[in-house]
Amino acid sequence: MTPLDIWLNILGLALIAFAVRYYPMTLLERFRLPSLVQQGLRYVPAATLAGLVFPALLTKNGQWAGLAHPELWAGLVAALVAWRFKNALLTIGVGLLALWLLRSVGL
């Protein structure tokens, strides 16, 4: 890949990453969305965040990981901590600690 190719890729990606973040919000100032779509947008955080969390707990290298998967149990412990204490640092710390403990006992 030539330096020109690299820069075309970088600049193209930068434009795309900006456009998907900027244009929907500016267009929506001029147009109103149908109420069904507005209703749907309220579920974007729950649905996308779960899509980012679940595969990390349930799969390994693109395959179903089963129950003997330390990430699953460490993640459940972290979910409990997140729900009970609502503290980001504590949740991440306990989750990582649980993962290391489970790995060290050979799960």
Partner: peptide, 18 residues
Amino acid sequence: GLEFAIPLSFMVLLIPAL
């Protein structure tokens, strides 16, 4: 296993969204 901090930080955000 530090990369596991990524889903954990999403977990922090997910729980209050429920």
